[in-house]
């Protein structure tokens, strides 16, 4: 059975280093298994978040050889024999310890988005599948925050003070495009979430483990809607009259 060489970040935000480990590779093993093997044998105090081990919970985000990914989906046989596998915490959020970062900022952003707001009625909802296919795409999000991690506004410019990031643009799009939602989040998107700061580099879309078309299906339509709302009053009136203001995303 072959052995793999891992370099795993050990330490806190203040001090840390990549430490070397050797792990026996079993068939079908993923990087998260290797981390668990290290934990069980050498370092019970190695900090890592995980839950489902099946790419459903979005807990085990890390940067493996520089690639932001879910460790539970990153197979060890992807690497050449003898290739060094470097596992680092995601960069955009402060390190708590080892591979665990402080992602609490995301939960604070989420609180500010106006929740689902249907008009009150007691009747059964008749909603056709084709009208929610897009919303369901957004609701696949497992909150791994990899999109937040690679968004250069957050990662390179550290504008967490201003920009809500792709994850929450996806969430907002899911609410705005819900056929029964009545709220309007455009002012928020423009003035507080600062959707304008996104310049559509699509890095977020590339890393999404759920293959959500974040840029094309969520961010760009929201940007267009913000433009309609604030910079094209005539167009907005026409769309209202034509009854196409909530449709035709």
């Amino acid at each position: 059975m072959r052995k793999a060489k891992l370099k795993v970040y050990r330490g806190t935000a203040d001090a840390g280093e990549f430490k070397d480990y050797e792990v026996q590779v079993e068939e079908g093993m993923v990087v998260l298994d290797a981390i668990h093997a290290i934990q069980a044998k050498d370092s019970p105090d190695l900090a890592v978040r995980w839950n489902c081990k099946a790419a459903k919970c979005g807990s085990c985000s890390a940067e493996v050889n520089g690639m932001p990914s879910l460790m539970c989906k990153t197979r060890m046989d992807r690497f050449e024999e003898g290739e060094e596998i470097r596992v680092a915490p995601i960069k955009t959020f402060p390190i708590i310890k080892d591979l665990v970062t402080d992602v609490s900022w995301n939960y604070e952003v989420n609180k500010k988005i106006k929740g689902f707001s249907p008009a009150p009625d007691d009747k059964e909802w008749i909603i056709h599948q084709e009208d929610i296919d897009r919303v369901q795409e957004f609701r696949k999000c497992i909150e791994c925050f990899l999109c937040q991690n690679v968004c250069h506004v957050l990662r390179d410019h550290d504008r967490k003070d201003a920009f809500m990031g792709p994850r929450f643009l996806v969430r907002t799009a899911g609410l705005e495009m819900h056929p029964k939602d009545t709220a309007n989040r455009m002012q928020y998107l423009k003035d507080e979430g600062h959707i304008g700061m996104c310049n559509i580099t699509k890095c977020c879309t590339e890393v999404c483990p759920e293959d959500i078309h974040i840029t094309d299906n969520a961010i760009i339509p929201l940007k267009e809607r913000v433009v309609d709302e604030f910079y094209d009053p005539l167009g907005k009136v026409i769309k209202k009259i034509m009854g196409t203001d909530k449709k035709g995303w």
Binding site: T12, Q39, P44, D45, L46, V48, K97, D98, V100
Partner: peptide
Amino acid sequence: AVKGDKRFNPGWHL
């Protein structure tokens, strides 16, 4: 028994 400290220490939690 475990080593290390109380910062995110899965062995201690276990």
